[in-house]
Computed example of a mutant assay.
Amino acid sequence: MICCRSGFTLRASAFALLVASALPVVAQEKPGGIVAIGGSITEIIFALGASDRLIARDTTSNYPAEAQALPDVGYMRALSPEGVLSVDPQMIISEDGAGPLETINVLEAANIPFITVPDAYSAEGIIAKINAVGQAIGEPEKATQLAGDLTVRLDAVVQTARQDAGQEPKKVLFILSTQGGRIMASGQNTAASAMIEMAGAQNAAVGFDGYKPMTDEAVISAAPDAILMMEREGDHNSTVADLLALPVIASTPAGETGAVIRMDGLYLLGFGPRTADAVSDLSAALYGS
């Protein structure tokens, strides 16, 4: 659902109409004072040449490097209303899933346009997201151009990835974390699963949706040819050596060959303007092309 909170709501059934409409999402044609919540939203605004209208961003918005100079209002799933309102926003544009709900309710009641852009893990989802942001900031023509260029590039890299994979696509296990030796992996209907498939491979984790812990038996049965992980810091970080030292990983085909791929989280899973490049890089890491 896309929501524009300045006295009205746009529900899911109106999403296609919103994207296609020539009318601006808000009364102000090209608003400034924008707070971007979500890395892909920030990337899109920069790609549309409207970075000068941004006044703040959330912690996940670390690309491009210039974005990091903006005030940080906190992690998108743990926002405080005080942190967001302290920068005096004229508009808030957010990825779906921002929270907590109590904060969102306060922000929506502050008489500031609050737009939530749905996220879908597909080429069509990225295009819809770009067009929705373009409409919100009064740049529909630039959004159409950006979306068109991305469509062409993404179609080309996905086709190349499938050709490189041939008749035997590799099985890839995306591991979110290994805290306590427990494998937290990506099942179906996730950004990671969609990226694996776009790169010409198969998700080795089947039988569940979302991110869940896998038993040692399930990991061994999945028999991944490669392990995919995010480059990250803090408690969830695990070096390649640490990962390969886990007996359950060592017993898989990926562990035996040391096939571990690590990529920046926003680049890999953001589903924004750089997705075509991320698919190309992942495919190259898997198939050596």
Rank of each mutant, 00 (worst) to 15 (best):
R77V: 05
Q28E: 15
Q179C: 00
A56F: 08
R182Q: 15
L243K: 02
L85C: 07
I45D: 01
F271A: 04
P253D: 03
I130E: 06
K30Y: 01
M184A: 08
Y75N: 11
V87G: 07
M91E: 08
G99P: 12
G207V: 10
Q179W: 00
S13D: 15
S94P: 02
L246I: 13
Q167F: 03
T257L: 03
T151H: 07
Y63K: 11
R57H: 11
R262I: 14
V157M: 04
V117N: 02
G166N: 13
S289M: 07
T60Y: 05
G288W: 10
Y287A: 05
M229W: 02
Y75V: 05
A27D: 15
G39I: 02
I183M: 14
S6G: 06
S221M: 06
I220D: 00
G83V: 07
I249D: 00
A254S: 12
A222I: 00
L23A: 11
E108M: 13
P273W: 06
M1A: 13
P140Q: 04
T190D: 01
A14C: 05
L107C: 07
G180L: 05
G207E: 14
E43Q: 11
T151C: 04
G138V: 08
L268P: 01
S61K: 07
N62L: 13
L286T: 14
G166Y: 08
A259H: 15
D58Q: 07
E139V: 03
P71K: 09
L23N: 12
N62C: 09
I130T: 10
I196D: 10
G125V: 07
G181M: 04
A191D: 12
E124T: 14
D96G: 08
T257V: 05
V26D: 03
T178E: 01
I115L: 05
V35K: 03
A147F: 09
L18R: 03
C4E: 14
I104E: 12
G125F: 02
L266M: 11
G134V: 05
Y287N: 10
P169G: 08
V157K: 04
G74I: 09
E233S: 12
A110K: 09
P213W: 05
Q145T: 12
L244E: 08
E141S: 09
S283E: 14
A222Y: 00
S283G: 13
E124Q: 13
I55A: 08
S122P: 07
Q135M: 08
I112A: 05
A12C: 06
G74D: 14
E29Y: 01
A136R: 06
A161C: 09
L243M: 14
L54V: 13
I112F: 03
A123C: 06
D155L: 04
S193K: 00
S251V: 00
T252M: 02
A245P: 14
V26N: 05
I37Q: 01
V240C: 00
S177A: 12
G148F: 06
T160C: 04
E124V: 06
S80D: 10
A259K: 12
P140E: 08
Q90I: 01
R57A: 12
A143V: 11
K142W: 03
D58H: 04
P64N: 09
A223D: 15
S238H: 11
P224S: 07
